[in-house]
Computed example of a mutant assay.
Amino acid sequence: MLTGLNVAVIGGDARQLEVIRKLTELDAKLLLIGFDQLDHGFTGATKVKIDEVQFNEIDAIILPIPGTNNEGVVDTVFSNEEVVLSEELLEQTPSHCTIYSGISNSYLDNLVSSTNRKLIQLFERDDVAIYNSIPTVEGTIMMVIQHTDITIHGSTIAVLGLGRVGMSVARTFASLGAKVKVGARDTADLARITEMGLTPFHIDDIQREVKDIDVCINTIPSLLVTAKVISNMPAHTLIVDLASKPGGTDFRYAEKRGIKALLAPGLPGIVAPKSAGQIVANVLSQLLGELKIDGKGSSS
C-alpha cells in the first residue's frame, strides 16, 4: 500500500488514467495537474492547478511518457492549461522527491541536475520497454495494413535496429509471412538476427538493402533513412518510423519523392492506451512502494 505518499500527476494522455486508478487503489494521495477537463473523478485524487500545489509536501512527481518538451512544457490532453515544470517549482519539493517519466531530454536532465533531484526514466527499464513493445508491434501492423495495398505475407520488410522494439517487430512480421531483413551494427546483433532465421545486414549497407523493400520500419533515433537511402527505395515503399521525435527519417525528402513516411512514436498510447497504461501503472506502483519502504515518503 502507498498510504501517506503524496504524489503529483502532471499531464498525460489516456495511459495516465490507468496510473491514477492503480495508485488510488493503493491509497496514495494524488494531486492531478492538467486534468480539469477529465469527466470522471477518482476517490483519493484531487484536480488542482499547478499554482495551487504545496510542492514542499510532494514525495513524487509523475510526468507523461514524453516527459516535457525542451521548454519544460508538459503535454496535457485533458486540459487547456499550459503546465511548465520549472526549477523554481522543483526546488520547493523535499530533497527525497523523485520524478518519474517515460523518457527524458536535455531540459529535464538539466532540471534534475540543477535541483539535485532523482529522475527515473521508465522506458530505460527492460521490463517496461519489452512489455510496451507488444502494443507497439500491434500498432505497426495496423499502420502497414492501412497504408499499403499488398498483404504483409510475402512482402519484403526492412527493420532498422534490433533493440527491444526492433526484435519484437522483426519477429512478428516474419511470423506473418513477410520476408524480413534487419539492419544492425553490433556483431552480436547480426548473429542474433541470423539465429532468428531472418536476414541480417550491416546498417552501413542500408542504401543497397532498401532497393527491393515494400516497407521500412525504423526503430533507431538517429538520422539513418537519409535522402540517399530514400532515393534508392521503390516508389511504393512505406516508411514507418517508430523512433522518438524527430525520428530517424528525412521526412521532407520522402514527401518530395512521393514516398509515404509516417512518424509514429507513442503508438501504444494510441492503439492500446489501457494496456499501455497498465504496464506503466504496475511498474510505478512497485517503484513508489520502494520509495516508501526506503523511508523517503512523507509517511516515514
Rank of each mutant, 00 (worst) to 15 (best):
G139R: 00
I130C: 12
F173P: 00
V19C: 06
D214N: 14
G154H: 14
A281E: 00
R21G: 02
E255A: 15
G248T: 09
V210M: 06
E25G: 11
L108N: 08
Q92R: 13
P66A: 11
P135I: 08
L190F: 06
M1Q: 06
R171T: 02
T98I: 11
M143V: 02
A28Q: 10
R252Q: 13
H202I: 06
A129W: 11
K181Q: 12
D241A: 10
N70D: 10
Y131P: 01
L287A: 07
V210G: 01
I270H: 06
A235E: 12
A45Q: 05
S275Y: 03
L262F: 01
G177K: 06
G44R: 11
E57A: 07
I130W: 06
L287V: 04
S299K: 13
C216S: 09
S95F: 07
D250C: 10
G258T: 05
I279S: 02
M142H: 09
N70A: 08
V9Q: 08
V215N: 04
S300E: 12
L108E: 10
Y253Q: 07
T237W: 05
D186M: 08
A184G: 05
S299G: 11
L26Y: 06
A281Q: 02
S222M: 14
G297S: 15
I279P: 00
V215F: 03
S104V: 12
T237P: 03
N218S: 14
N282Y: 02
L238E: 02
K228V: 03
A158W: 00
M142W: 01
V74L: 08
G258H: 09
R117F: 07
N105R: 11
K256Y: 10
I152W: 09
F251V: 05
S175R: 05
N105A: 14
E195Y: 07
G139M: 03
E81G: 06
T136Q: 03
F173N: 00
L267N: 00
A14I: 01
A188L: 13
E138G: 05
I10S: 09
D59I: 06
G161F: 02
K118N: 13
K296N: 15
K256R: 11
A243L: 09
I61V: 15
N56M: 03
T249F: 07
H147W: 06
